[in-house]
């Protein structure tokens, strides 16, 4: 393979003032009238001292259901002073993987904030999904406690929650994509 001719631009932190591009409606992926299984996804982000990360930008992207005029499949939310974020979206279904693999329903999640020079990417899976047991990404994680950091738990009808720990005990599994 020929060496690339150019090198990807270096990332820099999103900083504490990214809210200038926030637009709160971006946290609602149903704002264009998408229909299907509506869910809310919430979570709290904490740092290595267990303190809330109150200035983060959280982004989700999902390849199921597919992008359409009524469904952007992408959202952006702020964390509040308690480190909490909230999205409204459609519950994803299974996603094709490499070869014959099926991936369990999941959201890609990226966290950007002051003190994070390159966005931290992880995935949110849904507790109790049968495909979780054979998912090609979850299967890379041997330690059940580490796997559990990616499994959102039910928090009421149509509600799912996943806490994200940037560092330390129960540190979320972040991914190099």
């Amino acid at each position: 393979m020929a060496a690339p001719r150019l090198t990807a631009t270096a990332s820099q932190t999103i900083g504490p003032f990214w809210h200038l591009i926030e637009h709160a409606e971006m946290a609602d992926l149903l704002r264009f009238g998408a229909t299907g299984e509506a869910i809310t996804v919430t979570g709290t982000i904490t740092d290595g001292a267990g303190q809330p990360v109150a200035d983060a930008a959280v982004e989700i992207w999902q390849s199921s259901p597919p992008v359409s005029d009524s469904f952007p499949a992408y959202g952006r939310a702020r964390t509040d002073t308690a480190g909490r974020f909230e999205f409204r979206t459609l519950k994803p279904g299974p996603v094709p993987g490499l070869g014959n693999a099926q991936q369990a329903p999941h959201l890609a999640v990226t966290i950007m904030a002051r003190g994070i020079l390159r966005g931290l990417t992880t995935r949110l899976y849904f507790q109790g999904e049968p495909l979780n047991d054979t998912d090609p990404v979850l299967s890379l994680i041997d330690d059940p406690a580490q796997r559990a950091t990616l499994l959102a738990r039910p928090a009421g009808p149509g509600a799912w929650t996943l806490d994200i720990r940037l560092q330390g005990e129960n540190e979320t599994v972040f991914m190099d994509i």
Binding site: G115, L120, T121, V173
Partner: peptide, 26 residues
């Protein structure tokens, strides 16, 4: 850069195979 101290993961990132989730985007 002091703000990185409590905000960087201590474990290395898990290398995962790219799928449609990573190769397509918003």
């Amino acid at each position: 850069y002091g703000s990185t101290r409590l905000r960087h993961p201590a474990r290395p990132a898990l290398r995962i195979p790219q799928s449609v989730t990573e190769t397509t985007g918003p």
